[in-house]
Amino acid sequence: MFIPQNTQRFSLMDIDTDRQSGFLNTLLAGERSLASNMVADFIREGVSVDDIYEQLLKSSLYKIGVLWETGRIGVATEHLASAIVQAIMNDLYPTIAATRKQPKTVVLACVENEQHQVGIKMVSDVFELAGWTTHFLGAGLPTDDLVRFMNSVRPQVLALSMALSFNWPTLEKMLQTIRRIFPSLPILVGGQAFGKGGQERLLAFSNVTYLSDLYTLKALLTNPASFINANVH
C-alpha cells in the first residue's frame, strides 16, 4: 500500500463555517433550488470545484451521515440530501466535461454491493478536471463485470470507493481478484469507511494508494508517475 506523503492542501480558498452550516440546513430541508443557487454563488465568487466538493458537498454529506448515526434524521432525509448533491454536481458537470482530455484513462467504481456513489463521482470529476478520460461505473457493479469492462478499456488507473466499513471483506476480495488479473495496475482507494481506520488491511496489496481527500488526489494528479510507478508495501 502507498500512502501519499505530500498531503498539502490544494485549496484555493476556504468556505467559512457559517455558509457551510447554511448549505447543510438547506440540504436537510430538501431545498434543491436554494442549494443550487448557493453553489452557483460560490462559483461566481471564484471558489474552485475542488473546494466546493471537499468543503461543501463532502463535508455536508459526512455531517448528514453523523446526524443519521446519532438518530437525528432518517434514511429518507439522507437519500434526499444525496440526490440534491448529485443534481448540483450535474449542474457543474458541463464545465468539467468540456475539459480538454489527454490519453489517460481511469475506471471508477464503488465496492461491489456498495450503493453510495457520490464520493467516487467527485473523484471522477477531479480526474476529469485534470484531463483524464473517465469511465464512471457507479454503484452496485459486480466484480466480474468490472473486470470485463477494464479488459475492454485498459485503464492506467482504477479507483474504488467504500463508504461503509462492513464492506471491508468485499473490498479485499475485489482487490485480490483485480490484482490477479491486473498485476501492476495502480489502484486508488478511498471513502468514508477509511475514516474509521483499517487502512493496515491494504498492506497485503501492492500498488494500492489510499486517498484521504480530493486535495490529495489533485496533488497526485499533478505528477501521476508518483503513484503509477509506486509499488510500496
Partner: peptide, 25 residues
C-alpha cells in the same frame, strides 16, 4: 420504496451526466 427511489435517482443522475457529456462532445 425510498431505497428504490434513491437507486432510481442515482441511475437518472448518472444518465443525465452521460447526456451532458455527449452534449458537450
Amino acid at each position: 420504496h425510498n431505497t428504490r427511489l434513491s437507486h432510481l435517482n442515482a441511475e437518472i443522475s448518472n444518465l443525465q451526466r452521460q447526456l451532458i457529456r455527449e452534449k458537450v462532445t
